[in-house]
């Protein structure tokens, strides 16, 4: 391990302090703001004075009731669950074939799949809006969930292929000798051995699905179906300049699930990120 001289250490820790404030301040600040009363928010804040004097937790209840945050939360939760399960079911077979199949141009195919990952939901949402309106699928839960699954599929396929690759092929062979079909091998051998990788993919997809904004914002006009990311714009519209503490509370409700996942399940997220990029 390196030994650092004192001046070097001071320099390193000043970088550390500046970056730490930069990354954490907005999150800490919005939480502090969300707990203030209407009078307290008029008291000018600065970097060394932004914590609330009394904590007003009732802001959260007010937001839930007044702008239907509870409905949005439920919609988001449903979309997250449907997406993370649906995308795995769609990704497993092709990830298996990419991992165990021997065929020409496999790398080309992987690059092709990843290319789709780069296409913005903005671009595809324009034609999808057009054909969904003809199929009467705009403003339907299943219509939106299908697009969510689609936009998470390329990366998940790629990730699961890598996870399957890491499982020794001897295990497949042994199961095949015991009379397992290929599908049986995938379901009974590969998927159970891939659970940590599946957990990584699921957490990663959940965070992304929770944050997804463009698809519901462009394709939904029925606010009973809005997820939190879109519903919160209602809060921005109604609370800006009048009750910023309510807007902050709505923001905290939207960011807390993702932030808690990071704090408790950091390792899984890091694994998904690094696996995805290193092999790309």
């Amino acid at each position: 391990m390196h030994k650092y001289t004192l001046p070097t250490k001071i320099l390193l820790y000043s970088f550390f302090a500046v970056l730490l404030v930069f990354f954490l301040l907005p999150v800490v600040y919005i939480i502090a703001l969300s707990l203030k009363s209407a009078e307290q928010i008029l008291d000018p804040v600065h970097l060394f004075n932004f914590f609330p004097k009394q904590l007003q937790f009732s802001n959260y209840g007010a937001v839930m009731k007044n702008i239907e945050m509870d409905v949005y939360l439920l919609n988001s939760a449903k979309l997250v669950v449907t997406t993370s399960i649906g995308v795995l079911l769609a990704a497993f077979p092709s990830a298996y074939a990419l991992s165990r199949g021997k065929f020409k141009r496999k790398n080309l195919m992987l690059i092709g799949i990843l290319f789709f990952q780069m296409v913005s939901p903005i671009i595809i949402s324009i034609p999808i809006y057009w054909f969904y309106s003809k199929l009467h699928m705009l403003n339907t839960y299943y219509g939106i969930a299908l697009i969510y699954i689609a936009i998470h599929l390329p990366f998940t396929t790629f990730l699961m292929k890598g996870v399957f690759d890491a499982i020794p092929e001897d295990l497949d062979e042994a199961a095949k000798i015991d009379g397992c079909s290929r599908f049986g091998v995938m379901v009974r051998i590969l998927i159970p051995s891939a659970l940590p990788g599946i957990a990584s993919a699921t957490i990663f997809n959940s965070i992304n699905a929770w944050s997804q904004f463009i698809i519901p914002f462009f394709l939904l006009s029925d606010n009973k179906l809005y997820p939190v990311s879109v519903g919160i714009l209602q809060a921005q519209g109604s609370y800006q300049d009048l009750s910023t503490h309510y807007l902050a509370a709505a923001g905290v409700i939207g960011l807390l699930p993702a932030v808690l996942l990071v704090i408790f399940l950091q390792k899984f997220i890091l694994r998904a990120l690094i696996a995805g990029a290193v092999k790309g």
């Binding site: 970056l19 990354f23 944050s211 921005q236 932030v259 990071v262």
Partner: peptide, 19 residues
């Protein structure tokens, strides 16, 4: 720093903008 940095990264974009 690692946790702080990933925390900022997972905040939904809309909420980052509002904040």
């Amino acid at each position: 720093l690692k946790v702080a940095m990933i925390t900022a990264w997972v905040v939904p974009g809309v909420i980052a903008g509002i904040t």
